[in-house]
Design a binder for these strands. Structure first.
Lengths: 193, 193
DNA sequence: CGAGGCCTTGACCGCGGTCAATGCCCGTGG
DNA sequence: CCACGGGCATTGACCGCGGTCAAGGCCTCG
């Protein structure tokens, strides 16, 4: 219970032992089954999820009913719909579980309180935001500048574990292409080896 | 000199009068001419630019020499290459001026010092990061999900002033299409009115 | 007036989308 | 244990959006 989060706070965030217990008291654990919904469009997102075990996804559904995956979140990742969490707007996105998962759940108020308790936590929170920005910017760059094949090659390079754990049509959705196209891209790559 | 930044800090960031002078002392003003470079690829970005007057752009150049515009920054916008500024990596991007511009320049250390001085400044800095994330996420969403025409319609809706101030091939670059395609999109839109 | 930057247009083409058929894997129930 | 069905990956045929290349027109500015 909360061990993953505990170790993460201690070894990555470098929260001092003196503050760890106090911070841990403020979060709760949630276990969800595969396909369970954690956020629906139209609702205000109140939570950040830390994945201790399992795999979540953040995605949109467009007018024609197609899903577009914005982000995956495997072990030791944080996932939220920040536009809704921070600004209090109804979310345009969905979050659900792709595997049975064990999550640590907290809200925006927790972030502020933990930031007051621990300067290391405050700094790490900023690091997360900055890192998120870097990540989104790289993704925009490759969506604008690169074709489907090089986007896929970059993806399997960056997230080899994810490729193993989700169906290919979800990878295609993340890359902004159809499953059929991804299948052809993979065939082409296999031919050249 | 610094009036734009002063008013911004006072009226948007809500920095208390007691702190304004101290914070303003720590930034400098820079005037640049159209086409002047402010950041080159390979260099580490040390600055954030606040645009008092004029217009900047952040862009990449791909292997085949094509420019891809990541962001425009008109009056009262902040622009930086955060991946480089915060993480200290060499930048993959360029920044230059699209018009003669008057800028307020500061660095990461300034942000930290000003955050210690003024809690309003600290909160606004977080607001900027959160807002940036929201913006990038929306852009990814429309790059994945929408065709050239609807991306253009969304752009002129969100940034009507920018459309007036930059050549169309730069708008095309921002949208991830060619100038020729944008021209056709605009013709189609005109036909239906 | 000439030159260069920008926008437009046309012809052509290729990447990736759509639709439909097939095959594979695997879980479920007869 | 086998039969069936559903979810997913692959393949083929076809097509359309958007890219490429080239030409022409319209500005502005020297």
């Amino acid at each position: 219970m909360k061990e993953g989060f505990y170790h993460y706070l201690r070894d990555r965030v470098f929260v001092r032992s003196a503050h760890l217990a106090e911070i841990l008291k403020m979060v709760s654990v949630k276990k969800v089954k595969k396909n369970e919904m954690l956020l629906m469009r139209g609702l205000i997102c109140r939570n950040v999820f830390f994945v201790e075990k399992g795999l979540l996804r953040l995605y949109a559904i467009d007018e024609s009913g197609k899903e577009h995956i914005i982000q995956f979140a495997p072990e030791n990742w944080f996932l939220s719909e920040r536009a809704s969490l921070y600004f209090g707007n109804p979310s345009e996105y969905f979050i659900d579980a792709l595997e049975d998962s064990s999550l640590v759940v907290f809200d925006q108020e927790f972030i502020e309180r933990a930031s007051d308790i621990s300067v290391e936590f405050r700094n790490y929170n900023e690091y997360l935001l900055q890192n998120h920005i870097r990540h989104l910017q790289n993704r925009i760059h490759s969506l604008i500048g690169a074709d489907a094949k090089s986007r896929y090659l970059k993806f399997i390079d960056l997230y080899p574990e994810i490729v193993q754990r989700v169906p290919q049509w979800m990878v295609a959705s993340y890359l902004g292409i159809t499953p059929e196209s991804l299948s052809r891209v993979r065939r082409d790559i296999a031919l050249f080896k």
